[in-house]
Nucleic acid binder design. Structure first.
Lengths: 107, 107
DNA sequence: TTTATATATCGTAATATTGCAATATTATAA
DNA sequence: TTATAATATTGCAATATTACGATATATAAA
């Protein structure tokens, strides 16, 4: 074998793992950073910003969109991508819970 | 080609991507959850808890340790793994910054 | 309609991850 | 020393990811 046994884990664990996988590549981190920096968020800008070819960036954008980390709306010939605050909240909340549970522990 | 062009991105982006990659598998999410749930954290327990073979879990633990998400101290024949609060803080802070930047934006 | 621009998809090669049996290592107990 | 227990490493097969050239699609402008 070799593929992930995701069927053996809880829905919650799989959901969080999927979110983190979407953020597990420096290009996708850079895309999120860039979307936060600019006001108009057009994919063409990102192609000029990152050292990757257009199809590769399109793939990374699709990965982020698929994980609901960004959402895109068609704007003429371009597509305006932006960050989905709900997903950011969900991830941040996950770590808030972890930190809270850690409060009463030590090693 | 095909491998990640991590050399082309900033240290910060690579660092965050490495952290998220360590959390991008449901087994590793489950391990972190389990370490939060129990007081004595011994690898043998995790082997009984998850539907994976011992070498596989050992690998996942190594991945988490390598990313500084957990740390282990030798305790006789066993190893006591526990969560590294500093790394949790670092990740949580990353999302805090994102949410703060999002405050003044909308799509 | 034709052309140009922006983005997506296909096909494919290179590389990385996942999982486990077998085996090695390390520390305690007898 | 010899066994036993816990964890790590090795080797390898199955699968997934990454990257990009070529091509397709879709919208806008001429």
């Amino acid at each position: 074998m070799g593929a992930s046994k995701s069927g053996s884990f809880s829905d919650k664990d799989n959901e969080m793992a999927t979110l983190f996988k979407a953020l597990s590549h420096p290009a996708r981190i850079a895309i999120v950073d860039y979307l936060l920096k600019v006001d108009t968020c057009i994919c063409g800008d990102i192609v000029n910003e990152l050292p990757l070819a257009q199809p590769t960036i399109s793939q990374h954008l699709a990965a982020l969109k698929n994980a609901n980390i960004i959402k895109g709306t068609i704007e003429g010939t371009a597509i305006c991508y932006c960050i989905n605050p709900d997903t950011i909240d969900k991830i941040e909340n996950h770590f808030g819970v972890i930190r809270h549970k850690l409060k009463n522990k030590c090693c």
